[in-house]
Design a protein around this nucleic acid. Structure first.
Lengths: 335, 335
DNA sequence: TTGTATGCGTTATCAA
DNA sequence: TTGATAACGCATACAA
């Protein structure tokens, strides 16, 4: 590895002071057009690149924001990260991606290291942190966007983005009812999941709107994976054989639900309709292709990054309202 | 956002020089046990955290390495990233994750920004860069590990990790032959893929070892996605109906292959066996569960990170040999 | 055991 | 239009 030239090296080679070079590098006024060109060329020749570390120390800005996700292996978060990175790249920002592996300790450690790196802003995806710690953390950063976590009192340096799970579940129920299904069931996710709870709320609201009643035995919780969906559905079908429609917590669970249906001799969607949630790539790989609630996760990421850059650039703007992302029902083959 | 205390603030509060505090922070000798305790407590109370930017400028080390992947949305790379991050976390390093979106320009931009940030090392996963640019890039970093790309002349600051694709394909062919299949076919990936080429080599070597001959019409290239596998397989089966075993470029392609088989009325694995590659989570979601070549990607990530940290810590060690990761055949239901 | 001086590469401030 | 000097927060080398 060869040592990179510094701004001083360039200045010496050009026979000017380092400030003149600095002005050229940052496209600032106060340099004669002729010297500017000369220095530009020299920079090119010498392969000079500004040292971001030194610049960060001097300006207290790092042109870097971080995104903290519980599990980067989960395409759900990977897609958000992708959208966020696209915007960051456009705007000349860099994106730090941290993975907490669903572990609160690591989340704390990650946030801690981010502070030490003087990051400009943080995108927090579904933080596990208790609310008090969360607010304390937020106050440490210049800008934060919170995904899928609702803060009671909005802060000026945080933007909030949430999935409109209630709406999504309602749309699913509407579709079931419109296609003649009457004996609906819900394979809900983990009891602790915020969005899981919201999806239950939406499901119940949908039933109510259709004049159907919510039967507790027509709901089953499960781990948010295929096998969880399969087992929960098998139990549910044993208990309530006439079920003709299932709303699943997410697409993985939906796939498990379909498997359980098929295992019990039911055909999907003829005997029983299944709707998933999230529209992950898997949805168009399995057969039947999943009818599901599409969430534009790249857009979530883009929005999250845009908002955070806004806050960074106008720190004194008024507190931001929560953004709700509306899921869209995409009708394929399973319902 | 409130301003964070600096080491000087702590020193003033403690009534000592900042060097004494610095020694405590870095667990260096030369401080009385009593003052050390006192300062420790003060650090705790004041919530002091060292500023990594300033530290990086002073030490020329950032305790940060980056991993550059073509597509973070692809679980293949996400898993590698996970393993790498786990090791980084253990060792007190931070991991920058950059996504190039399969785009050479963005790869260049990413590498460029990494240089400017004075990153300690970089994990390059399947770089698109032409070999000359690649070598030029590598020389800019203190430490590099290269994944799935072979360098002719090893450099002291780079470790190389490659999947033993040849072995993997051979294992698959062996398994086909051992279970009585004789009319094998290969749904290869994109022609430009390095590992795709190696898998073809292994497939041919496997055939040769079994005394079978390679028929060009028993091979079809395709895009490395499910739909590509489905279409390519449909064509292949039309052309060569008696095929009784298919080795697919990867698991996505394998799923497509299975779909094409079923579409044509063939049962898997009774009429035709299918083996995938990579063992992504999907492999145990679809039915039949995929028999496939498992690659321990987390281990790849862990190894890559370990190697890079070795180089960082012992820059003068001799050049590293290439590590080959051996795939393992996991037999499930599709072959 | 503790402290002082200096420098890391850059930008900000103010003077020429 | 230019340049000298002082930060930025910390660590290294050396002195007390």
């Amino acid at each position: 590895m060869k040592k990179r030239p510094t701004i001083t090296d360039v200045a010496q080679a050009a026979g000017v002071s380092l400030m003149t070079v600095s002005r050229v590098v940052n496209d600032k006024p106060g340099v004669g057009e002729e010297t500017r060109q000369r220095i530009r060329q020299l920079i090119e020749e010498m392969g000079y690149r500004p040292n971001e570390i030194a610049r960060g120390l001097a300006t207290r800005q790092t042109a870097t924001v971080a995104i903290v996700v519980p599990d980067i292996t989960n395409p759900f978060f990977a897609q958000i990260a992708c959208g966020a990175e696209a915007v960051a790249f456009e705007k000349g920002y860099h994106l730090f991606l941290l993975n907490t592996a669903e572990n609160t300790d690591r989340e704390v450690a990650a946030l801690d290291s981010l502070q030490q790196k003087e990051i400009d802003g943080v995108l927090l995806c579904s933080p596990r942190l208790p609310i008090d710690d969360l607010e304390a953390t937020i106050s440490q950063f210049a800008a934060v966007t919170l995904f899928n976590r609702e803060l009671q009192n909005p802060l000026p340096n945080v933007a909030q983005i949430n999935i409109n799970d209630v709406l999504g579940a309602q749309l699913a129920v509407q579709h079931f009812v419109a296609s003649g299904r009457r004996r609906l069931a819900l394979i809900a996710g983990p009891v602790t999941s915020t969005s899981g709870q919201r999806r239950i709320d939406g499901y119940r609201a949908g039933l109510r709107a259709a004049g159907l009643i919510f039967e507790p035995q027509a709901m089953e919780h499960c781990q948010p994976v295929t096998e969880g969906g399969r087992m929960a559905t098998a139990q549910l079908l044993a208990r309530r054989p006439k079920t003709d429609a299932i709303l699943a917590f997410n697409d993985l669970v939906a796939v498990g639900a379909i498997q359980a249906c098929e295992d019990s001799g039911r055909r999907v969607p003829d005997d029983i309709a299944v709707i998933g949630f999230d529209d992950i790539p898997l949805a168009t790989i399995v057969r039947p292709h999943l009818t599901t609630l599409h969430i534009d996760l790249e857009e979530v990421g883009r929005l999250a990054m845009s908002k955070i850059l806004e806050i960074i650039q106008q720190p004194d703007a008024p507190a931001h309202a929560t953004h709700w992302i509306d899921p869209q029902l995409v009708i394929r083959d399973s319902a």
